[in-house]
Design a binder for these strands. Sequence first.
DNA 1: TTTT
DNA 2: TTTT
Lengths: 129, 129, 129, 129
Amino acid sequence: MNKVILLGRLTRDPEVRYTQSGKAVASFSIAVNRFAGGQEQADFIPIVAWEKLAETCGNNLTKGRRVLVEGRLSVRSYEANDGQKRRVTEVVAQNVEYLDSRQTSGTEAGNIDINSFGKDVFPEEEIPF
Amino acid sequence: MNKVILLGRLTRDPEVRYTQSGKAVASFSIAVNRFAGGQEQADFIPIVAWEKLAETCGNNLTKGRRVLVEGRLSVRSYEANDGQKRRVTEVVAQNVEYLDSRQTSGTEAGNIDINSFGKDVFPEEEIPF
Amino acid sequence: MNKVILLGRLTRDPEVRYTQSGKAVASFSIAVNRFAGGQEQADFIPIVAWEKLAETCGNNLTKGRRVLVEGRLSVRSYEANDGQKRRVTEVVAQNVEYLDSRQTSGTEAGNIDINSFGKDVFPEEEIPF
Amino acid sequence: MNKVILLGRLTRDPEVRYTQSGKAVASFSIAVNRFAGGQEQADFIPIVAWEKLAETCGNNLTKGRRVLVEGRLSVRSYEANDGQKRRVTEVVAQNVEYLDSRQTSGTEAGNIDINSFGKDVFPEEEIPF
DNA sequence: TTTT
DNA sequence: TTTT
């Protein structure tokens, strides 16, 4: 079992990219509030969604929206530019529930097909946050 | 809500340190297995426990033991030696259940009071993993 | 581990009672929606909160409000009037988060101290739903 | 969200039945222990699994085995023989992890196809616990 | 009806 | 740095 459940608000619009094989990947962060030491604090937690879920997130979520995310915790390692090994920890979303009324958003969220620009295409499973 | 539930095995004995104010902090990692692409993979997830829970983890857990951890996901930022901002993501344990029989361990786990050596004392909440 | 996490709306105002020893007990149900067979269905799930949490629920929640409940699943047996053994299954709340803006409620929720009426006082842990 | 996570031991071998349309349904209870009032108590929680999961449960689980169950809480109403409405509350398993070593069981678990006896066939979704 |  |  590897289960994560988070309630928070998007800190920015989701960014939707596509892998070389055409799989959609949405990235965003949520701020999860908690009280500690008498004052409100926030954890900023990176979320990643894949395929169909990535697309619905890209189409429906915008900065500030509140979501309930269910997923699993993923830790990946990669070699940084300076040759050092670095870790990327993120929550891979399995389900996302939208918790406030649709704010008939003027700025349509993310969902940019980067393939159409021929850049920012990542190899499979190799997307640094 | 910020909830994490993980089932896995310790990759090493817990390390128990003490903050300057005397609070115990246990650190360990667990390997959480999952099947993906037809084969078994593992996520190695850093766990931190505080105070009384830190001490019971240090006294009872050893490398290889299977645990069910309930906690919250914490993301801290700190300035690295190279001046860069780096992130530490870890699960702050709130409850730990031991899932296999006590392997009447010869090597008693961790629980070294580093204060008695006058080193490795960290300021509160400033313990890099 | 006995963990339940539910997102739903109160089907009625909470009812707050007091045990003979003076412990507050709030009871309410939430409707948890889900899609099944192409249409929306609801599970109506009985929730019980104790002591301080009972009082904050009684003071802050009203019918229709959306909550995120964390608790444990409890199954109690009792003898019914017809001599038959019956089971009561309910979620004992450990934490309740309010998910929509305070609807400056006209009808203040529950919180009736039944001791002041000398009735409906239940023996400890013996409150049928 | 309707999420239940339970760690417990089977109180009996699972019983596997089949609906008229041929869907497998496994039923069993697990004892979930907890400390309360200085002593160990147990909640006995009814679990139901459907289809492929029902079959793997029937084939692999026996009384006494420890499992980690993830599922959702379901509340169904039905008319009892005495004309009264009665409620059935159970956890519908979505995933079951086996937590102790296979006890190379002599008595192979459940999995009796009751259709071969022409009895105990229940209409869809109408299986009283 | 109850598990270890 | 990695568990079974």
